[in-house]
Amino acid sequence: MLFFVSYGCQSVASGQHVEVDPEVHASPGDSVVLPCKAIAGGTELTRVSWTYEDGGDRINIAVFHPTYGASFPDSPLRGRVSFTQGTLEDSSIEISNVKMSDEGLYTCEYAHYPSGNVQGTTKLIVQERPTSQPPTVTAGLSTSAVSRGPCMPIEMEVQAFPMGSVILRCNVLQAEALKVTQVTWLYEAKGGERASIAVFHPTFGQSFPDFPQFKGRLRFTQATLEESAIEITSMARSDEGKFICQFSTYPSGTLESTTTLTMRAPPIPCLQ
């Protein structure tokens, strides 16, 4: 038996979005399809990865790159997860022999250039099936970490003064072996929403997605696939938050590190 649900959309800048199903149900022993399609909106799709989260850290489970192909990093789903199409436009995955422990959040994340990373998340709910009901293949479609690995920030916390400037750095070890394909910086305000603010791709170069808060105040001071550094000028108290550096890699998936930025009161001038 095959089930489908209706579409919905998680829109982002310039018309890009990821189509996933918010919730899919399965029973132990089933095969389940988790759909994921990208609407590029005039941007370049450079890589896609799937991660699994059961309440703790995100685990990379599947990666597709147009040059290197499909990869399935070590995870509890290895050997049971596969791409149904294996293209950048349709990166749906199928999980076979579903287990109760497979329940959790599955995130499909596309690396775009020049707009950065866009993602959609599906919640997989696994329930025992009545004994009279045969196994099913479940699918749906609508719209909607990541491993820390060898990726690290130079500083986990940084402080800055109003109207000053700050440089945020991160690097990845063994970049050549990991086949890093793109570096993306994201900003997460106190509300928890993430937005891509800076992107580096070895072929397409540097990009600064349209994010009004940092417009004209952000630049790369170092832009390679091994090391990345961005500078923010004319700092304001509203710039406080988390800055996430993401390396899109093959075959390991997305590696990320986070630097927390806090603002300090301006120094009091000394009187002579």
Rank of each mutant, 00 (worst) to 15 (best):
M1D: 10
F4V: 13
V5M: 15
V5D: 15
Y7C: 12
C9F: 10
C9T: 14
V12N: 14
A13W: 03
V18F: 00
V20W: 05
V20Y: 05
A26V: 05
G29D: 05
S31H: 05
P35V: 00
G42M: 09
E44K: 01
L45A: 08
L45S: 08
V48K: 09
W50G: 07
G56S: 09
D57N: 12
F64L: 13
A70V: 12
D74C: 01
S75C: 01
S75A: 06
V81G: 01
F83M: 06
L88E: 10
S91A: 15
S92K: 01
N97K: 13
K99D: 04
K99I: 00
S101L: 03
G104I: 01
E109K: 06
Y110W: 09
A111M: 10
A111C: 07
Y113F: 13
N117W: 09
G120K: 02
I125Q: 15
S132I: 03
P134K: 10
P134V: 10
A139V: 08
L141T: 13
S142Y: 11
T143R: 08
A145L: 07
G149A: 12
M156L: 05
Q159P: 00
E176S: 12
L178N: 08
Q182S: 04
T184E: 03
K190W: 04
G191H: 13
G191N: 13
G192E: 14
I197R: 01
T203R: 02
F211E: 15
F211V: 14
F211Q: 14
F214L: 11
K215M: 10
R219D: 04
T221N: 04
A223F: 02
A223S: 11
T224H: 01
I230C: 05
R237N: 13
D239H: 04
G241E: 10
F243A: 06
S248L: 06
S252Q: 14
L255P: 02
L261S: 07
R264E: 14
P267S: 13
C270Q: 15
